[in-house]
Simulated assay, not measured.
Amino acid sequence: MIETFKNEVAEGLNSTPKTLPSKYFYDKKGDALFVEIMNLPEYYLTRSELDIFKNKTQQLINAIDLKPNTYFELIELGAGDGLKTKKLLDLLDKQNFVFDYFPIDISANSLNLLEEDLASTYPNVSVKKKQGDYFEVLASLKNSNKPKVILFLGSNIGNMNDQLAKQFIHNLGKNLQHGDKLVLGVDLIKPKEIVLPAYNDNKGITAKFNLNLLNRINNELKGNFDLKQFKHQPEYNEKEGIAKSFIVSKKNQHVEIKALKKTYNFTKGEKIHTEISRKYNDSIIKNIISNTQLTIEHKIMDSKAYFADYILTRS
């Protein structure tokens, strides 16, 4: 893992413009900061999808077309703390559905905390945690030939540009069989007055989350980033429906990363692109899945129509 981190940091900082992968937000400190972000008043995304899973749980189950007496595998990509999924697990458990829950996440810390929580809250639910790359884990599960329901929630797909998202969904579809389901949670296109504060909260938690990437480089790759000399900067293009996060250098400066055996120069105002957060509508989703064998069966929205969970079926 450390070699991959090292290689991807080197690749990003050697690029023009500079970039850093958003997946490295999530170490132990990053996990805790993101939990704080999800509870912020400005961060509508979690509340919006939670609204669906809390108040439209039966509608979700009906849309996925689950049967209590037919075994299936419930597989969640990027499970995190399982906040929303617990609402689904609760009703599935109460209605005596027969299934195994496979939470997949890059963060071992998140998986361990989720496993402990579910063991006490839902002792009857079979939890089989899997740490690692989504597709490696899915490939290992594909051979089971059991019906599968994939959860890819939180608009995590929005962290990819459209080309990467198309490839991701294409690869995902290849790991599914006829009749398997995908629940794809996406943030819908909205005015900047709603979107931008979600990535720039008044308490500065999102800024700490973004800058924690530099902290990780300092700790794990022996870098000497002075976090006080960099700032968090979000931007949102309402017409495109794309929000981006940047780390911006406050002055001309040099940063050494010993593990990479290199010193990087930053000019005042220079940006490091760390995250994209795509917003969607029906036409964008149809384009994303155009090169797959997945078809849209249902679209379930929260009470404010901020967020949607699309139910896709593998043909």
Rank of each mutant, 00 (worst) to 15 (best):
L111Y: 04
T206A: 11
E238K: 14
S144G: 13
I257Q: 07
K29G: 01
I217R: 12
I106W: 01
F168Q: 03
N281R: 14
E73H: 15
K94S: 13
K174A: 11
A32K: 13
G241I: 08
K29H: 11
L88N: 05
F168D: 04
I272Q: 03
Y199T: 01
T46N: 05
E8A: 00
D201L: 04
F307P: 10
N215E: 14
K54I: 02
M38L: 11
N69P: 10
Y264S: 02
L66I: 06
K181G: 02
V35Q: 15
N265K: 13
K239A: 13
G185S: 03
A32Y: 11
E73C: 15
F72R: 12
F225H: 06
I2H: 12
Y134P: 03
A305R: 14
F97M: 10
Y134F: 13
L60A: 07
S283E: 12
Y310V: 04
N156Y: 00
N62H: 10
D201Y: 08
T57L: 03
K192I: 12
E136C: 02
K203M: 00
V9L: 06
K261D: 08
M301R: 11
F225M: 07
L176V: 09
V255S: 08
V149S: 10
N159W: 11
Q229P: 09
S245P: 09
K142S: 11
P197W: 02
P17V: 07
G132C: 06
S126A: 07
T16W: 13
K29N: 09
N237D: 15
D201K: 07
G241E: 12
A259I: 00
